[in-house]
Design a binder for these strands. Structure first.
Lengths: 287, 287
DNA sequence: AAGGTTATGTAATTTATTTTCCTTATCGGC
DNA sequence: GCCGATAAGGAAAATAAATTACATAACCTT
């Protein structure tokens, strides 16, 4: 268990001072990472050995180790620990959104199932035709992104944000078709129906969704993405960053399976793009 | 100047041992962050004072400070230091994409111009009609995302991924229209033409783009996003994460400008969604 | 309330880091 | 190629920091 979880673990039995130190650490990471054990002890109102023991309980071998581990997680999730504060100033909004996006990526990194990703990439790579389905705003973006990344690699892919369309696509699927669907809730009634239909037509499916959800249960390969949702209704969900990262990873794995072929397609596309700009070659592939 | 740049700065005059220590640090950050000054000195084949001096030259106040700063950058950019290694295993691809995405967000956080964001949010909030323009794959996603986030807040917004369409939109614009455009290169010839047209029609424009680019020069409000691009041609640009974060921030600022109104729209949308799922209320707003 | 257990502090000890001072290498000018 | 200046580096002493050992206090438990 890493320091992040150890610090936030509600189960951990804490003595009075332990709780006090925990609070201090979470409240001001920057101070703690920069302080000596004496400074920290004084500010916490405890003795230095108490700090050492605190660090050991958290799984660190020493105070120095604790500081390093703490510093390591500063940008990946620590602010998340704090209760959802009302953000009002521009700075607060920026901090909050950026930190949560980073934290989401961090959590994703810890939970990704490598084998399932490889399975999914293998399916995509071998597919004669790929159908990407996602609707409702966030997942539409993901479906479109799948198309955007894969056609560049020479895949034949069609994305749709229309579940009625997906039904028709499934009906038209040939045996070498693979469908990839995205649903953050995994409980979309129509998407579930689509998946049943895909199965009925023997079309293999890949799902990016919450594990254990109805969508997950019906897919051939599931890439589970289980992340806490923010409670701020005004704010778009940071889970999108995780889904986007999964698409990036899949596209990369597909590309790497046949570098020669991928490179050829990418170059061809790039040549067209550059001629449409000012001839500067240092351009991005697709703005 | 931060440690990251100090370590990689080619300009920095380095003595023989300094170069040796630099190389050791970059090669094995994990060892360095976990070692004592003596262990590091021994492994580098130098004396402890040399390490202390090395840290000071890099702008740290002590070896402990150096270790903490080093630990802090592990997740934000360190991989950039090493030559782009061919990533082959699933783990490597995952690490690479997640680390670069986090790094991109980190860089963004450091460079965002708060005042410009506030200006942009104010324009959007006050607009009678918003036109979002972005094309070419990555920026299309951003334009769509702008529409997706803003209509939920009660804004009247139309996005297009078609620059010819943008020309027509500009021509049809009323005085209360605001256009928001995205271009990662900032050098798209057609988009530049669109911006000139918008200006000609007295339509205020917001640009998310590279600072100093032709697109930036023509917009009323520029939100500069200047990020290093990975050189790996297979990799979709991690810059997307930064653009997405900017959209999130803008949408949030717009929502906060009139919470009551935003809440009202968001609730209405949510009610419709829930009835279309399985009635579970803990659902996302738009999958 | 006695007995055990856990938490905490004090002081001693150990370990780690920095400073001071001295030596050695390097470089430019003659 | 030698001299002097300057910077780099190391050894050892001094200092600072962290941990251990031990003592004491708080807290359960029955």
């Amino acid at each position: 268990m890493d320091l992040f979880h150890a610090l936030t673990d509600e189960e951990r039995s804490r003595s009075r001072l332990d709780a006090k130190i925990t609070a201090l650490v979470l409240d001001d990471v920057d101070f703690v990472t920069g302080s000596t054990i004496n400074e920290l002890a004084e500010r916490a109102g405890v003795s230095p050995p108490t700090i050492t023991r605190f660090c050991r309980r958290l799984g660190c071998v020493s105070f120095a180790d604790f500081k390093v581990q703490l510093a390591r997680m500063t940008y990946v999730g620590l602010r998340y620990l704090k209760p959802e504060l009302p953000t009002t100033t521009v700075s607060e909004v920026i901090d909050d959104i950026v930190v949560k996006a980073q934290d989401t990526l961090f959590s994703l990194h810890n939970q990704l199932d490598h084998d399932r990703l490889e399975d999914a990439a293998r399916l995509l790579r071998g597919a004669g035709f790929i159908q990407a389905v996602g609707a409702g705003g966030n997942s539409s973006m993901i479906a479109n992104e799948i198309q955007n990344r894969l056609f560049r690699l020479g895949c034949h892919v069609q994305s749709t944000n229309d579940k009625a369309m997906a039904v028709m696509l499934a009906a038209a699927a040939t045996p070498d078709t693979v469908a990839i669907v995205s649903s953050m809730t995994g409980r979309d009634v129509e998407l579930v129906r689509c998946l049943d239909l895909y199965r009925h037509h023997n079309v293999l499916t890949i799902a990016l969704t919450q594990s254990g959800s109805p969508v997950a249960e019906r897919a051939s390969v599931v890439i589970p993405i289980d992340l806490p949702e923010g409670v701020n209704i005004y704010r778009p969900t940071s889970t999108r960053y995780a889904y986007l990262a999964v698409i990036d990873i899949l596209a990369n794995l597909v590309a790497y399976a046949d570098r020669q072929k991928s490179l050829q397609y990418l170059r061809r596309i790039k040549e067209e793009l550059v001629s449409n700009r000012d001839g500067d070659d240092r351009q991005l592939l697709g703005d």
